[in-house]
């Protein structure tokens, strides 16, 4: 593998909400233009790890660097799609205004202008929701809302795109579309995606990390035995047909 400078460095990071440790002694680096899938059991700390990288949480121990600086200082570099897109669903807000949030303080300019609206329309076409700009967010389907949130993340022109289970409420055809879009975006952006979805792990990502209090980082798109052992089993939707050996290495395959 060619040596690419890391955009994210996680150095001996530990974090706990209460007494129980959520994450302990995590150390890994994410190189530039990586496409990383984070898998792991529920409650294993995937979302927590993402919030630490985004600077929304502070580690109790260790440090995280984004392009050599603290995540809080670099927060605008991120495009973030949170896990729960149904939060605040009764809020009186139109799709356009949600996506425009991604343009807040864009390149230092205050307020929203014509170009921002133009860009939102482009992004809506790109994410497969053209013409919905004046619809209320509560009138959309969960899958459409998911796309609105992806468009909002992209509106910030981020260098690093972080998605927390972005396909949870999208149908199979929609998933393929979204993964293809992410693959295109990966030409210029670093992408981290939390997913339980085998499809994305097998055919789109460049590396896989299993997070369950600790981390097992694997710089190939495979799930290794170690991952399965550390998480008892990583809850990947293992489907038998297709090419399972691409996903799961067999014993003695080293």
């Amino acid at each position: 593998m060619t040596q690419v400078s890391p955009v994210i460095q996680v150095q001996d990071v530990s974090f706990s909400y209460n007494r129980e440790p959520t994450l302990t002694n995590l150390t890994f680096e994410v190189p530039e233009r990586e496409f990383l899938a984070i898998i792991g059991p529920n409650g294993g700390g995937k979302s927590t790890l993402i919030k630490l990288i985004l600077g929304l949480l502070e580690p109790n121990h260790g440090r995280i660097l984004v392009k050599g600086r603290s995540p809080r200082k670099m927060s605008k570099i991120f495009g973030y799609v949170p896990q729960d897109v149904n939060v605040n669903i009764q809020f009186p807000i139109a799709v356009m205004d949600v996506i425009l949030m991604g343009r807040l303080r864009h390149r230092g300019h205050f307020g929203i202008n014509k170009q921002d609206r133009q860009r939102v329309m482009e992004l809506m076409t790109m994410t497969g929701i053209p013409g919905l700009e004046n619809r209320k967010i509560r009138d959309l389907s969960a899958g459409q809302r998911e796309r609105v949130f992806i468009a909002r993340a992209l509106a910030a022109d981020p260098d690093i795109l972080i998605l927390d289970e972005p396909t949870a409420s999208v149908d199979t055809a929609g998933k393929t579309e979204l993964y293809a879009l992410l693959k295109d975006l990966n030409e210029t952006k670093t992408i981290i995606v939390v997913s339980h979805d085998l499809m994305i792990v097998s055919s789109y990502v460049k590396s896989v990390a299993c997070v369950n209090q600790g981390i097992h980082y694997h710089p190939k798109n495979e799930i290794t035995e170690t991952m399965l052992q550390m998480g008892y089993h990583c809850p990947v939707e293992l489907i038998a047909h297709g090419q399972p050996h691409r996903i799961l290495k067999t014993h003695g395959d080293f």
Binding site: L54, G55, L56, S75, K76, F78, Y80, P82, M101, G102, L104, R105, R152, A156
Partner: peptide, 8 residues
């Protein structure tokens, strides 16, 4: 959370 990331 999103507002914070945008520097608000």
């Amino acid at each position: 959370e999103f507002a914070r990331l945008r520097g608000v």
